[in-house]
Amino acid sequence: MVGENAGLRPFVASDIDWLVDAHAQLYARDEGFDQSFGVLVREILEEFVAKQEIDVEAGWVAQAKGVPLGSIFCVRSDVPDVAKLRLFLLLPTARGTGLGRRMLETCMRFARDRGYHGMQLWTHESHRAACALYAANGWSLTRSEPVHSFGVDLVEQTWEITF
Rank of each mutant, 00 (worst) to 15 (best):
Q52F: 05
R102D: 07
H127W: 02
V39T: 09
Q157C: 13
G38K: 01
Q35N: 09
G59W: 02
M108G: 02
F110I: 09
V155W: 05
S36P: 09
G7C: 01
C107I: 06
R101P: 07
E57C: 09
E43L: 06
P146T: 06
K51W: 11
T123A: 14
S36D: 06
V67C: 10
V56M: 03
G3S: 14
F11G: 10
H127K: 05
E53N: 09
T93D: 01
M108C: 06
A111H: 09
R9H: 05
P146G: 00
L89W: 01
P10E: 07
E57K: 09
S36Y: 03
E4A: 07
L133P: 00
H23Y: 15
A24C: 14
T162Y: 13
F110M: 12
V147M: 00
H148Q: 15
R114L: 11
R42N: 03
L99Y: 09
T97L: 03
D153G: 03
W122N: 12
G38P: 08
L87C: 12
D153C: 06
I16T: 15
H127G: 01
F88Q: 07
G115W: 01
D17P: 03
E145D: 14
G59T: 01
Y116F: 14
E145W: 13
T106L: 09
L154F: 02
W159I: 12
F163D: 04
I161G: 06
T162V: 13
V82L: 03
E57S: 05
R109I: 11
S144C: 14
C74W: 01
V147C: 04
D30M: 14
E156R: 10
A28N: 14
Q35V: 12
R102G: 02
E57I: 07
F33L: 12
E145M: 15
I72A: 08
R102I: 04
F48Q: 04
L121M: 10
A22R: 09
E125Q: 15
A13T: 03
E160M: 13
I54M: 07
D113T: 11
C131Q: 13
M103S: 04
H148V: 15
V41L: 00
E4M: 08
S140G: 08
A129K: 08
G32D: 10
A129G: 04
A28W: 06
P92Q: 04
A62I: 00
M103K: 00
C107Y: 08
R101F: 02
L141I: 04
A58Y: 00
G32N: 08
Q157S: 00
E145P: 11
L154W: 01
E31G: 11
E105P: 00
L87G: 05
F11R: 08
K51L: 12
V79T: 10
N137I: 11
K51C: 11
T142Y: 07
W122C: 05
V56T: 06
T106Y: 04
R109M: 12
D81V: 03
D34N: 15
A6T: 07
M119A: 12
E4Q: 09
D78A: 09
A83S: 10
V49L: 13
C107H: 02
R109S: 13
D55V: 06
L69Y: 13
D21E: 14
W159H: 13
I16V: 15
G7Q: 04
S71L: 02
S144N: 09
K65M: 10
A130G: 00
